[in-house]
């Protein structure tokens, strides 16, 4: 029971911290909407292009924002000494991981849903699938992303260094996951790299669901790869979460 209380304490603390940071909260919701509007309204006359890009953009933003948010908050936990203080209590790895996941998941999902609804109903992207299927894919992406944030924060000493991981981890995925150019048109060696990137699978799954009305059972391979990636990232986060 006590252990559940610790996870809950961490999750509610994170939620409280995000909620109080009004400007960040506004940016979390506002920035993706601006990006989506920019792309959405630029391609209004070229619907097929927009239909290809939008699902990928939803997945990219779900991964990107949560990653940066988690990496910076966990970095602060390390650099301000609160993690050191926490580790002098009976806190466990699972308390920290589950607490962090639960704390961020709520905001990440709210963000994803808002972007999704905006994309479907304001930008007016074609849409054939089930809304819940899309949310499940985004949930898996978010879990992987929170874990990746915790893991990567181990390698950064300050916020500046965290930001440097964005071009390293996110930008290649944007270019190689098929968001801009179909993966089949990439040089063969980049196609191989593309096959190893989680965003490639998230894009494919979301496109199949949104454009072709596929169900979850149709995109089981993509889901499998994403779940595997989430598990690997969770394990990496668990291995490094106690480092100060």
């Amino acid at each position: 029971m006590i252990s559940i209380d610790r996870k809950l304490a961490i999750a509610t603390r994170i939620a409280k911290e995000i909620r109080r940071d009004r400007r960040s909260l506004a940016l979390i919701i506002g920035a993706p909407i601006i990006v989506m509007s920019l792309i959405g309204f630029s391609f209004q006359d070229q619907k097929p292009v927009l239909n290809q890009v939008a699902p990928a953009l939803i997945a990219t933003m779900a991964m990107f924002f949560v990653f940066v948010l988690t990496a910076i908050s966990f970095l602060r936990e390390r650099s301000q000494g609160t993690l050191e203080r926490l580790l002098a209590t009976a806190v466990t790895r699972s308390d920290l991981l589950i607490g962090y996941l639960a704390g961020f998941l709520l905001f990440a999902l709210a963000q994803s849903v808002i972007i999704l609804l905006y994309t479907l109903f304001v930008v007016d992207v074609d849409y054939a699938g089930n809304l819940w299927d899309i949310i499940i894919i985004l949930l898996i992406v978010t879990i992987a992303s929170v874990s990746m944030g915790i893991f990567i924060s181990t390698f950064a000493r300050n916020e500046f260094q965290v930001v440097q991981f964005i071009p390293l981890l996110i930008a290649p995925q944007i270019f190689l996951s098929g968001m801009i150019l179909p993966t089949s048109q990439l040089p063969i060696y980049f196609q191989k790299v593309s096959g190893a990137l989680p965003l490639t699978y998230a894009n494919r799954a979301l496109r199949d669901i949104m454009l072709r009305g596929a169900s979850l059972s149709d995109v089981m391979v993509e889901i499998g790869v994403l779940v595997l990636f989430a598990i690997v990232m969770l394990a990496a986060a668990a291995a490094t979460v106690r480092k100060t």
């Binding site: 029971m1 006590i2 409280k16 940071d21 301000q80 000494g81 609160t82 926490l86 009976a90």
Partner: peptide
């Protein structure tokens, strides 16, 4: 055992009460 690290090691966005409440909870006062 109670431990006070060299850095203040507290959550900036939380109040005095919330900080103490959080650490008390982590120390098992459920």
């Amino acid at each position: 055992v109670g431990y006070m690290p060299q850095l203040n090691a507290l959550y900036e966005a939380l109040s005095v009460r919330e900080n103490l409440d959080f650490f008390a909870r982590m120390l098992g006062l459920s």
